[in-house]
Simulated scan of single mutants.
Amino acid sequence: MTLSILDLAPILSGGTAAEALRNTLDLAQRAEEFGYRRYWLAEHHFAPGVASSAPAVLIALVAAATSTIRVGSGAVQLGHQTPLSVVEQFGLIDALHPGRIDLGIGRSGQRRAELAAKGPAASAAGDPPAARTVDGLLIPAPFDFSKLAAHPHLLHYASLLQQPGAQTPDFNDQIGDVLAFLHGTHEARAVPGEGADVQVWILGSSGGQSARVAGERGLPFAANYHVSPSSVLEAVEAYREAFKPSDTLDEPYVVVSADAVVAADGARARDLAKGYDLWVRSIRTGAGAMPYPTPEEADAHVWTDADLELVKDRIDTRFVGTPEEVAEGLRVLRRVTGADELLITTITHDHRARVRSYELLAEAWNRP
């Protein structure tokens, strides 16, 4: 199976965090039955509609509730904690679930600060690339994340994730420390953690430092089509260009993420997919992910042109439809990006429909 799952533990409109976490455990168990390769948990903070604020804790719970599927982070944000604390957390989980744990690492805290410092004026210099189709895959016009990164609420919230006066070291140095702690070559000992059979991944949204560090260190790389679809080709290209064989990999290994909703017929899938655009809008306005709305709540929202522009790239690149339609779209994504594996995120207000979506997709993906 070359499909995996990324879960945010979404809190549903009218629901609770406890219900969201129980849904995550149920979905992980069903994903194992369906044959998915790995089950990753995201890290989100200050979001009323997301319960995955502490991925290491949630990974431990999911690993304990399953037996064979790989479980990991997509991703731990290294700007919010030290390499030692991360290695100790994942080493502890690996001690009880050896050989099943993925440590996916992102640099979003550092990247957010860089984007905020750059400001929208710099990113607006010149005309942005227009949307285009590459061998059947839509590559939309880029979304300007610098405006969101500079949002006063987000800047304040980001400060709450670190001790006063704390400074995030260079990402490459941090990754070096993580690997040194795991391999036992650091001057300090990480216990548990040293010698843990943890697979280290780098996640990235562009052709910037994350992609280069993953390639230069010979680590597997996860590229982000579902959040930043405009730069996915740039990201995988930069990773492959920088790749050097290592003790971990002889050649590049790429996972690409995608949003998808599947149902037995297209009309049902489109109905289940309602709410996603409103949910994305809540993120991109700086309010944080809202509790995932019902289709009726989504229909009641009055959209402005500015709202629609805010979410257009995410809506246009989502895969929604019958099992065959979505599987074919994902095969295009895999072919164009050269991905070895795809990481699927599905969110619906109906948990049973969400589980069924993953089941239908697995069946269609495995058919000749």
Results as ranks from 00 to 15, higher is better:
A287Y: 04
P293K: 01
P293Y: 01
R281K: 09
T294R: 03
V254Y: 03
V302F: 04
E297A: 09
D271R: 13
H301D: 10
A260F: 09
I283V: 11
R281E: 12
A289T: 01
Y253E: 09
R268W: 08
A287T: 04
V262D: 11
A300H: 03
A269W: 00
S257K: 10
A298M: 00
M290Y: 08
I283C: 12
A306N: 11
Y253F: 15
V262S: 11
L272K: 04
R281L: 15
E296Y: 07
R281W: 12
A263F: 05
A263Y: 07
A273K: 00
D250S: 15
A287L: 03
G275P: 07
L272E: 11
W303Q: 00
P291C: 12
I283F: 09
V280D: 05
R281D: 13
A300W: 01
V262N: 12
P295T: 04
D271A: 14
E251A: 15
T294C: 02
P293N: 03
V261F: 05
G275T: 06
E251D: 14
P291F: 14
K274S: 14
E297I: 01
V255P: 10
P295F: 05
E251P: 10
A298N: 00
S257E: 11
A273R: 02
L249V: 02
E297Q: 09
A260T: 07
Y253T: 08
W279F: 11
A267R: 13
A263D: 08
D265F: 12
T285C: 01
A267Q: 12
R270Y: 11
R268G: 10
R270I: 04
S282F: 02
R284Y: 15
S257F: 06
Y292L: 02
A260K: 06
D299K: 05
P291Y: 13
Y253K: 13
V261R: 01
D265A: 15
P295V: 05
I283A: 13
D277N: 07
L272C: 09
A306G: 06
A264T: 14
A300L: 04
I283M: 10
D307M: 00
D299V: 00
Y292Q: 02
A264M: 13
P293D: 01
L272D: 07
D277T: 04
D259M: 14
A306Y: 04
A300P: 00
P291H: 13
W279R: 02
R281G: 07
T304P: 01
A287Q: 11
A300V: 01
D299E: 10
V256D: 08
A289V: 00
G275A: 06
A289N: 04
R281I: 08
K274R: 15
T285Y: 01
A267S: 13
D265M: 14
R268Q: 12
D277W: 03
L278M: 07
R268L: 14
T248H: 12
V255S: 15
R284L: 14
W303P: 00
V262G: 11
E251R: 15
G288W: 00
L278D: 10
D265T: 14
R284K: 12
Y276H: 12
T248I: 09
L249P: 03
A269D: 02
G288E: 01
L278V: 08
V302G: 08
A264I: 13
A264K: 15
D271P: 05
P252Y: 10
A287N: 07
D259N: 15
K274F: 10
A300F: 02
V261D: 04
V261A: 07
P252A: 08
